[in-house]
Design a protein around this nucleic acid. Structure first.
Lengths: 159, 159
DNA sequence: TTTAAACTGTACTGAATTAGTACTGTATTT
DNA sequence: AAATACAGTACTAATTCAGTACAGTTTAAA
């Protein structure tokens, strides 16, 4: 369907929400309430994010989750990698290898690999700190007033 | 799964194959044989491509399909549009509208719309003529020797 | 020390989507 | 008239997704 799964969608939602208060421990319950999602669903997402080192968890009363690094350094690609099937690839042949029955004589694997690269760079080029629209009544001189202006900034090649 | 469907994959395969002999009428049977796919499957794909004006069909003996325009002017985005769910969108909210139960208070729709744009441009930026690797023993001065060199060319902004 | 909040891990079930195929009908050429 | 090839619809099995449930462990606070 060329669409991210709902779980991945929730992942970006949750991570973006956490990015708003990056130093604050938030519990799955709080996130579920704030975002209108089921607790079990939110837990499932956070667990996956934790496995991939994007959040760290704190057990017990007053426990919860915390972003493991500044939100500017967590990209949408990171979230996708944590929640979608790995490895990344728009087609079967460009992701794994060997499973495609057409391998022999396939002339377009090359093309798809190039497209993958560009798409991946697009996802890598957006951090969870950049997902939310600029605050409407923000003071333009405040740090919160800094904003991304359109897609041109999106494709940056991190390395 | 953030992956194109197999049908879409077949679509790019079929279109790319046809792009190699752009003026020749090819039957579904020939394509199925050449690509190692089922006839019914190939027919299904070609029908969808026809509905979207990418190929024209010719019935009867000696009938078959023909690209409706030069392969340089048929993009991967065209194939995707013909075979994947419409409209294009990596998330539910960035494709349609109204179906997302979280609409109210969703802060990231904007971000996903921007990402969509970039991904879509990547798909629009590659024609089915550019999918195959350059012929290995091609004369460098021949038209067939022209080639795309890496992803930088991929993101071109057609509009 | 007890209790409650909160994370951990696994498993399950219904729904939705995908993939591939079958079948009947129509058009065209030889 | 016959063979080839497209047109359209429908169907079934397999896969994937989405959401939830449950039993267990850790930690902080009362």
């Amino acid at each position: 369907m060329l669409r991210i799964s709902k779980l991945t969608d929730y992942g970006t939602l949750i991570a973006t929400h956490m990015a708003a208060t990056p130093t604050q421990v938030v519990s799955a319950t709080e996130l579920a309430d704030a975002l209108g999602l089921g607790l079990a669903t939110v837990s499932k997402v956070l667990k996956a994010l934790g496995r991939h080192g994007l959040v760290v968890s704190q057990r017990g009363t007053r426990g919860g989750y915390l972003l493991s690094r500044p939100p500017e350094r967590i990209s949408i690609a990171d979230i996708v990698d944590a929640l979608e099937e790995q490895p990344f690839g728009l087609t079967e042949c460009s992701a794994g290898s060997g499973t495609c029955t057409l391998e022999t004589g396939c002339r377009i694997r090359d093309g798809w690999l190039r497209i993958n690269t560009v798409v991946r760079e697009a996802l890598q080029g957006v951090s969870i700190a950049e997902m939310t629209p600029p605050p409407r009544f923000a003071d333009a001189t405040s740090p919160a007033g800094r904003r991304v202006r359109g897609p041109s900034r999106l494709v940056r090649h991190p390395g």
